[in-house]
Amino acid sequence: MITIENLHVRFGKVHAVRGISFTVPAGSSFGIVGESGSGKSTVLRALSGLNDDWTGAMRIKGTALAPGRGKDFFRRVQMVFQDPYGSLHPRQTVDRALSEPLVVHGMDDHEARILRALSEVALPASVRFRYPHQLSGGQRQRVAVARALMAEPEVLLLDEPTSALDVSVQAEVLNLLADLQERRGLTYVLVSHNLAVVAHLCPVVGVMQGGEMVEIVSRDDLRAGRTVHPHTTELRRLSTELEEA
């Protein structure tokens, strides 16, 4: 579904992403972990079309992506950001936020689609005319996911979707993402600094450090400790150390 080959991103003199490659089969998930500044979000932004300054090759469903994407691309590929309070317009109701993609992509039957989207992310219909500040953090992130689903995408790019949430709410959102993937056959690319979250949702995980993808490891190998690169081993150690406490 998604193929990335030898992707480079530069910001002036800073070489933020240094030739990374990976593929994601349709209906599967690929996780990217790394620390701040490792370039993990930059990969996602280049893939999503938010940053056109890249070199290399990216293909979605066999179609090569060029800088300046068509409208159809932005329907098929949607993004969910870390902080739902920052990514939802504070003066627009949930209804307005969910209508916008429908208007942009000229889709019909707004009423039914909005109600269906709300029920799909397990929100009561009563939140439809509320503003973001009237919702809890978890509800807001559900709205952000619902908004991404409005245009019936095939790919969801998730940038730290649960980092701003309490662990109990994180569990609900992760379950929701797993359910949606199963129901709609979505393909996910999930970026997070939390190894346990990434391994929970993705069968394959890429570890980034200093702009390079230093290791691509399967979830099972990661769980069993069959890691090759020292950075992966270190991240795994820090993650399991606390679990054993």
Partner: peptide, 9 residues
């Protein structure tokens, strides 16, 4: 409710 590396859920 926390995902864990050591025990898959």
């Amino acid at each position: 409710c926390m995902p864990a590396l050591s025990q898959p859920k």
